[in-house]
Every structure is written in structure tokens, then in C-alpha cells.
């Protein structure tokens, strides 16, 4: 497999992304062709075109098994956003579909592993599709009157536009982002809702002290 994060100078046409990313980018799987005729059990949205990334996710859930039997999506975004949403949808519905809990347990790093890695500065893109799925699952819970399952425990949404939580910021700090710029490079926090930035900076300080003293 090719090294994803390097453009070599001697081979000037070498792809920036891994072959798997490229495949999912040029041949996206499970995208929503016609949402008019689609009966979704849950629908979720995250991001905005102004932020540079926006995703919509539709799911069908088998109520007996709680398996997510279908996941459809649309993505406005760069190559890795399209590829990671495509891969995410494949992971959710493969082998007859994961249960809701299993599907929600898919983290951005799992998607990245399956993609053969993403360039560092592109990680924020795949961070979005798990949020879009979570939002679709919450919508399913709402529709099926399982209100108590909606709130994700211990997690607070900091950026309301991109639905970035304190947990996302904690993860970014743990992965070595020690400044607002670096956290933004990973999460894009605040690009749609700059009013949250003071709180983000506070959280970065808090987690830095917590983990790195």
C-alpha cells in the first residue's frame, strides 16, 4: 500500500491518499441517490458548507435486532471526507449490519485504519461522519420514543455547528494537539461557531494540565 501522507518529488503524480481512499473517493459506496423514495428510520446532519464540510446520514434500523441494516449518506467535502464517509457506511452495514451500539463504537481512528490512513491534516473530515451517524441514531431514538437513550453521557457539545464535544477536544489533546491551532487542524472546532473558542481554549489548558502536568 502507498504511504498516504507523502507526495514524493521524484514521482510527481503520486497520489496524496492511499489506494483505498482513492477507491472510495472515485467509487463511493452507499451514497444517497434519491432521498424522496427512501424511508429512513433516522436522519442526521453535521457541519455546514461554510465550514468546508457537511454531511447528511440516513439509516434504516431493524427494530428486532437493533441492527443498522442500511446507511446512506451525502457529503460536501474534500476527497478524504467523501472516502471516509463511504468507508464508514461500509463498516456500519457489513455482515448484516452492526447493532446500534456497535455502530456508535466505530471511532474515527477505526475508519482511518480501514482506509489505510489519512493525511494528518485531513483527520477532521472523518471525525464528522461518526457525528452524523450519532445524530441519525439520536433521530431514530426520538422517533421510536427511546428518549432516555438520546443523550450521550458525560459528553457536552462545545461547537454547536460542527457538533464537537469536550470529548473530541480531550482526544485531540491526548493525540498531541497542544494549541488552539493544532486542535483546530484536527477538529475544525470554531470555524462554524467562533463563539465557542474561549471555552475551547480553556478546555485545551485543562486537558493539557490533566494529562501532561
Amino acid at each position: 500500500m502507498s504511504t498516504p501522507d507523502v507526495v514524493s518529488h521524484d514521482k510527481k503524480d503520486k497520489w496524496l491518499y492511499s489506494d483505498i481512499v482513492k477507491d472510495h473517493f472515485f467509487n463511493p459506496r452507499n451514497f444517497m441517490v434519491d432521498d424522496d423514495g427512501y424511508k429512513a428510520d433516522g436522519m442526521g446532519m453535521v457541519g455546514s458548507p461554510a465550514c468546508g464540510d457537511m454531511m447528511t446520514v440516513w439509516i434504516k434500523v431493524d427494530p428486532a435486532t437493533e441492527r443498522v441494516v442500511d446507511m446512506r449518506w451525502r457529503t460536501f467535502g474534500c476527497g478524504s471526507a467523501i472516502a471516509s464517509t463511504s468507508m464508514h457506511s461500509v463498516m456500519v452495514v457489513e455482515d448484516g449490519g452492526r447493532t446500534i451500539d456497535e455502530a456508535l463504537a466505530i471511532r474515527p481512528q477505526h475508519i482511518m485504519e480501514r482506509l489505510g490512513g489519512l493525511p494528518n491534516r485531513k483527520i477532521h473530515c472523518s471525525v464528522l461522519s461518526d457525528k452524523a451517524l450519532r445524530s441519525a441514531v439520536n433521530d431514530y431514538f426520538r422517533k421510536t420514543e427511546q428518549i432516555s437513550r438520546i443523550t450521550t453521557e458525560g459528553v457536552r457539545v462545545i461547537d454547536k455547528v460542527l457538533k464537537i464535544t469536550d470529548h473530541d477536544i480531550e482526544e485531540a489533546v491526548l493525540e498531541g494537539a497542544d494549541s488552539l491551532e493544532k486542535v483546530q487542524a484536527r477538529t475544525k472546532v470554531g470555524t462554524g461557531d467562533p463563539s465557542c473558542l474561549p471555552e475551547v481554549e480553556q478546555l485545551i489548558r485543562f486537558y493539557k494540565e490533566k494529562y501532561f502536568g
Binding site: 473517493f25 468546508g52 464540510d53 460536501f76 467535502g77 474534500c78 471526507a81 467523501i82
Partner: peptide, 14 residues
């Protein structure tokens, strides 16, 4: 409108 430049650029590059 409605689409993102990098994605377009990569398809064009191909």
C-alpha cells in the same frame, strides 16, 4: 456551488 474544490481538483487531476 454545492461542491468542494479539492474533490473537484482530484477528479480533474485523475
Amino acid at each position: 456551488m454545492d461542491i468542494e474544490g479539492e474533490a473537484m481538483l482530484l477528479y480533474l487531476d485523475e
